[in-house]
Each structure stands twice: as structure tokens, then as C-alpha cells.
Design a protein around this nucleic acid. Structure first.
Lengths: 153, 153
DNA sequence: TATTGTTATACTCTATAACTATA
DNA sequence: TATAGTTATAGAGTATAACAATA
């Protein structure tokens, strides 16, 4: 049977993985003039299409005020624009500029390259174990994290 | 043979894992009046014993100015103290208060519990695959991240 | 009256540069 | 002259609360 030591080692791996992924993303995004928070917003926008700031705040789980700041930065650096909402004059629609659209496509391509870099050296057997193991761990972790919020988003 | 789609799925898992780990740590640390950055400092101090701020800056890979701020916060909240260095009057030694020492012990215990929570539901076969797979991925990622720094720490 | 996004304010983490006290 | 840590300044991310315009 496995003991606490094995579990401790595996947790160490997971923590290092989280840390390194963060460093890697920070580095590569900085080269394109982006931060992690702004890139997350772009990513969400990519999957939803043009949407209001309120929708983005909900989706990213941050305050509306925070979205104002992130969009300000992305507008200033020409990744997105604020357009008037067609039917609700209180709201604004956030949309990609040409440059923003290009950047998100490059991010998607970068994802593919990173995935290949990370997993191409992993044997089929290891890969299968990795995916299954990650699935199990993620399930636990999702519960753990949402539990603390009392189930609220 | 595995394709880009499988790799993409696995990368998605890794990204979600990094994100959830971060959320989980942020939540549990906040309950003890700590932030991730401050907890990292405490963790380093736990493994090194009392040391100077310069040593901490090196170890954590942040600027000396940043350490000043983090230690200021930890002193104000009674987790650590600044003591005079016995032989170098320019330097200060950062040490745990009683409360700080207790908190770090609790963090270690929390680690153990988290590890058990995450991995107790994983079969032996999956666990082995997970650890091996993570090892392979970590090796790649370490190269990737340090490469960009030109090998410098 | 409720909602959308803003201004006002504040805190944390982070960095560089200039400076002080010591070595 | 070099080093340890500080003050000064700046920017990003985050939050809450008060407020404007609109629904």
C-alpha cells in the first residue's frame, strides 16, 4: 500500500507543475505585451465572441471594476475595442481588434506547441496513466475548491 | 498513435490543475491571514531556519525590495521578527515568532491532508502512471522555463 | 427600482533606481 | 568600493462602496 510519503512526493510534483506552468505562461505572454489576467480575458472573449463586461466579470469570477481595468489596458494596447451595445445603452460590447484576433490565434497555436513539447516524450502507457490520474485528482480538487465557496460560483 | 487532440485535452487538465491549486491555496491561506507570497516566504524560512532578507530574495527569486514588503507584512501580523545579525550590522535575521512557527507546522499538516484528499481515490495503477507522467512533463517544463532565462536563475 | 459600468479608495505583489549604513 | 536593506516611485491585479446613466 502507498504511504504518506508517496502522496507527499506527488503533491510536490503537482505544486511544482502549477508553479512552472504559471512561470511559462507569464514569460511567453510578456513577449506579446500581455499579462496572464488580460490573456484570460482574451481567451474568454475568443470562446464567447463579443460580449459585455458584465458577462466577462461573471465568466472570469472577478469584480466588474476589475474588468473595467483589464479592458482599459487591452484597449490601450489595441487588443480589443469597446463598442456600443445595440439594444442596451448602459452596456458596452467588448470585441477583438484585428491585432487581438491575430494574437488569440497565435495563443491557440502556442497551446498546441506547448502540448506537444510537454507530452511528446511521454510513452503511451505513461500518458494514459497521467490523463486518468489527472482526471481523478481534478475531480477531487474541484469539489474541494467549490465546497469552500458554499457552492456559489 | 496519439494525436494533437489528446495532447490538447491533457494540457487543458494541466492548466485547470494549476488554476485550481492556486485557488485552493489562496482560499486556505486567507483563512489564516496569509497570502500565497507571504506563505512562500514562511515556507522557505521553515526549510532554511533564520536567515537574512538577501538570502530570501535569492531563494524566492524576487527583488530585495519585495522582501522588505513581505517581511513588513509578516512582522505586522506577528508571523516573523527582524533580529539584528550577530556579525553584520547591515543585515537583519528573519525568524519565526511562536505563532509563525505554529502556523508553518499547520501548513505542513495541511499539506499532508491535501495530499491524502487528492490521491486517496486514485488507484495504485493510476497513481503510478500519474507520478511517472508528471515526472516526464516536469522535466520538459523545467527546461522550457529555464531556457528562456538563458540558464540564469 | 434594478442593472451596467464608472469613479473613488485601498491593499498586495512586483520592479527599478537612488540612498544610507555598514563592511 | 561593494553589500544589505531602505525610501521613492510606478504599475498591475484585486476588492468594496458610492454614483451615474439607463432599463
Amino acid at each position: 500500500m502507498r504511504g504518506a510519503e508517496q502522496h507527499g512526493t506527488a503533491l510536490g510534483q503537482v505544486l511544482e507543475l502549477a508553479d512552472l506552468m504559471n512561470d511559462d505562461m507569464t514569460q511567453s505572454l510578456a513577449r506579446e505585451g500581455l499579462t496572464v489576467a488580460r490573456a484570460n480575458l482574451l481567451w474568454e472573449l475568443h470562446h464567447r465572441g463579443p460580449c459585455t463586461q458584465g458577462v466577462l466579470a461573471q465568466a472570469l469570477g472577478v469584480s466588474p471594476r476589475n474588468i473595467t481595468g483589464l479592458v482599459d489596458g487591452l484597449v490601450a494596447t489595441c487588443f480589443v475595442t469597446r463598442e456600443p451595445h445595440p439594444t442596451d445603452r448602459r452596456a458596452t460590447l467588448v470585441s477583438f481588434t484585428e491585432q487581438g484576433g491575430r494574437t488569440v490565434s497565435q495563443m491557440a497555436e502556442g497551446h498546441r506547441q506547448l502540448a506537444d513539447l510537454l507530452f511528446s516524450g511521454v510513452s503511451d502507457t505513461q500518458f494514459e496513466g497521467l490523463v486518468e490520474g489527472l482526471g481523478a485528482v481534478l475531480a477531487r480538487l474541484r469539489e474541494e475548491v467549490s465546497e469552500v465557496n458554499g457552492g456559489r460560483p
